[in-house]
Design a binder for these strands. Structure first.
Length: 107
DNA sequence: CGAATGACAATCT
DNA sequence: TAGATTGCCATTC
């Protein structure tokens, strides 16, 4: 197993692995924590390449719209089902109720 | 080193 | 309001 990924990716995996159940986080937040509030895409790319051996709850990582990743990538309806099982509430639009489940970091 | 990629975000029309 | 475009930045070829 060679470490193809550089530090940034591991930082992303580290944060994602810390997401408690029933909570979600946005790509922009993770990027901001890493010091690059504009690297939201890098976070998404890290998720795309996220190795399952990290047990990354990538289903808890959503965009700011509270929207989940494309079913084509995740696997048709799996992500939403997982979140619902963890106690995450969804809106009628199929988006996560960010105001209730979005992680709030210590201010 | 340069070009291409990408599970986003913000802005414009 | 919804769809399309641009910007941003790390990783890969």
């Amino acid at each position: 197993m060679s470490k193809s990924k550089q530090g940034f990716f591991e930082e992303v995996y580290n944060i994602v692995s810390q997401i408690p159940e029933g909570s979600v986080i946005t790509y922009g937040m993770i990027a901001s924590m890493l010091g690059n509030p504009r690297a939201s895409r890098i976070v998404g790319y890290a998720m795309h390449d996220a190795p399952p051996n990290r047990s990354l709850p990538c289903h808890r990582v959503v965009n700011k719209q509270g929207r989940l990743s494309p079913d084509s990538i995740f696997g048709a309806g799996n992500q939403r089902d997982l979140l619902e099982k963890e106690g995450v509430a969804f809106n009628e639009d199929g988006c996560i109720d960010m105001d209730k489940h979005l992680i709030k970091w210590d201010l």
